[in-house]
Design a protein around this nucleic acid. Structure first.
Lengths: 346, 346
DNA sequence: CTGAAAGCGCTTACAG
DNA sequence: CTGAAAGCGCTTACAG
């Protein structure tokens, strides 16, 4: 493997000159620069990453800390991961994927071994045990997911309160006055999935403002439970004409549930969900939905992280909390309420 | 940040002694060893990864090269990724996730910068353009997916030929004599997805041996195409009583398609698929299926890779091709053929 | 515009 | 059983 010494020799210059010619960190005569570049080409030289990291204290690598829970939605996770890794690469960084169940230990290890220049945390909980440590270490961190206390880190998330409101608005505007919201299971909330209640609260508040009836449920996050749940809600609220889904499994299951009952959207019921566009495409979900914007959130987190890594630490910008506003992908599952259903009796 | 020099000073020994005490690479008096360990604890010392890499030419990191194609099945990919990353961590390695669309360039860059000790390649194609380079570089490689020429690398894959045979056998044994195989789209084959035709050929050969009729199709890999395809096949082969699915989208779509026709499995039609157990759970697919064994394949690839990295290069073991034998997760979707359907007329 | 040298933080032969 | 020193391959002040 060629070293910078080999390059220098081949170009007939010193090692420092070769280094400067490549980094551009001081002016070099054009002739020398070209000789060095030619030598690099000829020898197929690539800098040794470990040596460079040792000399510069920069690794050009970021760590991506996920929590991959069994009942999390895998298709969604991959979107976040690819958003991060592709943006990182564009910026010249590699991505270390960390799936340790003990995120705190991983953070400590990677920080103090100086393996990475910064951290992106996925799936951040309301009270995330990784945050106190993240604030203490030297490397900056960017979160995807809004924690209770966002101090000292940069945060990116979908605005779930606004999302809940927007979902109610969309159905209200089409004439619906009795709605059912299907959320993730209680235990997702219990472990810190604040987005669940944030969306639910947004929806509740907006429904109250508009005088709309909103039945709220925490449903299962997989079959067969979710299928039974949905059927149950439809039975219990025969006059409800609109369905809000903040639960990917519910969205995946709903087409079969409706088909089994001889119903369809939007003829018999209007539906609006909240999940990623990739998810919708994969399962060809026919429901209008607020896009999770997974790749955008991942990309923004990385951009901010890199700007902190490379920025002047003295002139550090204040930390930001950026909430992306909800955007509805219209798939035609919202229409005026079905008269038959509105006249249904309990 | 504490260095080994700080540890040595605190323990009252030389840097080399501190290093040896930690690595165990030579015998150390118990008293000294304990003093060093105490100093490590007190100072919170973690070796600098770059320095260690420079000194040892080992990074304790492996690269995971995936191809994340738009029409690939995301949920399945994440299984492979987690299988690799979790096994790597257990073995003391971190995982660099590489999603560059240009796999060859990434391989070159990571190899010659010495960033990683080895490579795991996912989604390997029949004629994979990364293989020639992989054979040339100094770091070993392990593949998940069987290429046309597996020379010089370790290969792990599901035995797709045996899988095709097993699927036919399962339906034959239950009494079925006319079957439909729904494969991935043609373009998956075109870009090197050999598993598609390997399974199809296995099924075809076994069907021929048993005298069973097998209709083979390449269907769409997303909605709404796949839904129409399935309906079409059921229309065209009214006497077919068994369905083989080597297409995740087909598996996801089939419940709605059957429901829409008032059919169910296994009462009206028997079904066997090939996808990951995690996928089946997420969508609660009610079909018996051959497990893709994504996490197992990922784990095995890493184990082999690590043993090559750490093994004596002189006594290098010959390269292996390990094909995992198909295992059917029985979800009760295979029964005796429906008499009504067998008597159906075209 | 260029070179000789120090230093980043480890590991490991070499000496004792 | 332990220490002083060299070396891994870079970058970057220091000198000219």
């Amino acid at each position: 493997m060629a070293t910078i010494g080999d390059v220098a020799k081949a170009a007939g210059v010193s090692r420092s000159t070769a280094s400067y010619a490549l980094s551009g960190n001081r002016s070099i005569s054009e002739a020398v620069r070209l000789r060095v570049l030619a030598a690099v080409e000829e020898l197929g030289y690539t800098p040794n990453a470990g040596a460079r990291a040792l000399a510069t204290s920069r690794t050009k690598t970021i760590a991506l800390l996920g929590r991959f829970l069994d009942d999390e939605f895998a298709p969604a996770m991959l979107q976040y991961i690819l958003g991060v890794s592709e943006t990182a690469r564009k910026k010249g960084y590699d991505t270390l994927l960390v799936s340790d169940e003990n995120g705190v230990a991983a953070l400590k290890r990677l920080s103090s071994s100086r393996m990475v220049d910064g951290f992106v945390l996925l799936n951040v909980a309301e009270r995330d045990d990784r945050l106190p440590l993240l604030r203490d270490i030297r490397q900056p961190g960017a979160l995807v997911g809004l924690p209770g206390d966002p101090d000292g880190v940069d945060v990116f998330d979908l605005d779930f309160v606004a999302s809940g409101r927007a979902m109610v608005d969309a159905l209200y505007d089409a004439g619906h006055r009795e709605l059912v919201l299907v959320s993730q299971p209680e235990h997702v909330v219990a472990r810190g999935g604040a987005y669940v209640w944030r969306l639910a609260n947004g929806a509740r508040d907006r429904a109250d403002e508009l005088g709309v009836t909103l039945h709220r449920y925490h449903a299962h996050s997989s079959q067969p439970g979710i299928g039974r749940d949905l059927a149950d809600y439809l039975d219990r609220h025969p006059r409800a004409t609109g369905l809000l889904l903040n639960n990917e499994a519910a969205a995946a299951a709903l087409p079969s549930v409706l088909a089994a009952r001889g119903m369809s959207a939007p003829e018999d019921i209007s539906v609006i969900g909240r999940y990623s566009d990739a998810f919708a495409r994969t399962f060809s979900l026919p429901f209008s939905a607020i896009d999770s914007a997974a790749d955008e959130l991942g990309a923004r987190a990385v951009q901010q992280l890199v700007s902190r890594i490379e920025g002047d630490p003295d002139a550090a910008k204040p930390h930001t909390v950026e909430l992306i506003q909800p955007r509805i992908d219209d798939r035609g599952s919202i229409a005026a309420p079905s008269p038959a259903r509105m006249g249904a009796t309990h």
